[in-house]
Design a protein around this nucleic acid. Structure first.
Lengths: 108, 108
DNA sequence: CTATCATTCAACCATATGGTTAAATCAGAA
DNA sequence: TTCTGATTTAACCATATGGTTGAATGATAG
């Protein structure tokens, strides 16, 4: 594994380890939003949400663009491919496991 | 999202956010190992590795079993399905994105 | 210009994290 | 029983994390 990819995965998984940040991603999957719109459902301060967005952006999971006096946030779907690739390596293991289970059950 | 699944994902992603722990998972993918065998490639203390293993176990990414005076660790491949499922939701987005890119490139 | 609105930045705080070393546990060998 | 080896636990430390509040920035509306 290349070092830069390691750091990239560190940042991505760390970003995803917080439930608020995962909820924000879900929210942005629907449509692009401003910081204020994103913050609205949460009880925490705007500054706290702003920090979460910065972490998501550093992990390249979202893209932030300033238009006028508003920042617009949107999902960066390609970033998810890093996780997809990382996970891909392990799929062979749980797939063979599930296949074994399936075979076992079908024997009955 | 159910709360318990949220906590489960918190633990899993947090566990995966550390490069040492991801390396341990890779290592265990090959075959089952003891704590000492796992620790051998790393410069850190055995106690530090022991902590990493506890975190991976709490995230249910590995299974730990004591046989005699050795603890044997192995991958728990089914735990990866949680990540798989979480990621699945976003695949529609980056897939349509990649399809769009593919179409664009094929136009040339 | 000036006031306002959206957002960030800075300073701060409590708790979590990832490491250390030293002591405790616990199974197997002598 | 006693010694040894494998591993965990405990206490500790420095830094990171996730939150707060209040001041700063920067674009828009009067």
């Amino acid at each position: 594994m290349v070092k830069s990819e390691t750091l990239r995965l560190n940042r991505i998984f760390q970003a995803l380890s917080d439930a608020t940040r995962r909820a924000i991603l879900r929210d942005l999957a629907k449509r692009e939003k401003t910081v204020g719109q994103i913050a609205q459902p949460y009880r925490m301060s705007l500054a706290a949400v702003s920090k979460h967005l910065k972490i998501l952006e550093a992990a390249s999971l979202i893209h932030k663009e300033k238009r006028g006096s508003f920042y617009h946030l949107r999902l960066n779907p390609t970033a998810f491919t890093s996780v997809e690739q990382w996970l891909g390596f392990y799929q062979q293991f749980w797939e063979t496991r599930l296949d074994a289970l399936k075979n076992y059950l079908e024997q009955e």
